[in-house]
Amino acid sequence: MAGAIMSNLETGQENHGQGVRTAAIVTRDLAKTFQARRGAVEAVRSISLDVERGSIVGLLGPNGAGKTTTLRMLTTLLPIGRGSAQVAGFDVGREPHQVRTHIGYVSQLGGSDEVLTARENLHLQARLYGIAPMQAASRAQSLINQLELSTYADRAVKTYSGGQRRRLDIALGIIHQPEVLFLDEPSTGLDPQSRANLWEHIRSLGAGGMTIVVTTHYLDEADALCDDVYIIDQGKIVAHGAPAVLKQQIGGTAIVLEWDTPPQASQACELLRSAPFVREAVLNETLLRLYVDNGSEALSALLHRLEQAALAAHSLRLSQPSLDDVFLRTTGRSLREETVEVH
């Protein structure tokens, strides 16, 4: 089953192959191992990316999948372990200075100066990128307008709300009009309204031709924002494609059944796995997910079988395939369950 997605990944890369010259990011078998006291930790095992210019690309995966480490290598913050990486046409290892002038990076922490105002932050950032004072001031003003910061542009950043601060962080990341913008978990900690507003801004940057790489562990974020998604788990790419295509490969409908005990679920899995209407079955403790072509037809057939075997499930629901199903199918684990977060 993973094979189907991997072969699709390969053909996807061939398609990109013709446009390597214009690619915004190309990496081959990027890897990073940290030496910790308790031995080596392979944070990134093998990441090969082909990011087209002007696209919004998501790196989706659970916490600890290696997304941030990958981003830190691509932004020159961390020396590359193994493999190669080119960003905006420059080799990250050999030409870090060139890479820095062509990229913007917004870390999870943000990075604005709390004591300074938005305008002062933006002005300094522009000047550090070598933009002349007059132009720096006008760029700062136009970003203040674009990102709806004008009401508080001259207040200290420490007075800002989470959403306002995030918009300033992004403004700081794009003041020098970079070719490639990296956003690390941009919507973490934001309320739903601020998230939607942030996505709107990111989309309009993408529409303006900027290449944007977003890391996220939110399925809806990857789905809503990205033209192309790399699903990453344990430092490796497990699936790659447009969200719609990835979900299509899962096909039809997912039926999610739950029993009281794992043995019941695994018995039911054995029973149903070979049924003609089941395309695929994924078992996770007491939960069984069945991917079927026709939900309603399959439903009556499987209920009948379960009843005969005296294995009636205590709950059952139908769902349209999500990126979580893609993740589940390739890793056997759910992204949703792994990333229960309190907001």
């Binding site: 913050l77 820095r100 990075g111 604005s112």
Partner: peptide, 14 residues
């Protein structure tokens, strides 16, 4: 470092 300022400065060509 905690506020990410050092990281932001290190990503610039400064």
């Amino acid at each position: 470092v905690k506020a990410g300022v050092v990281e932001r400065l290190r990503v610039t060509p400064a």
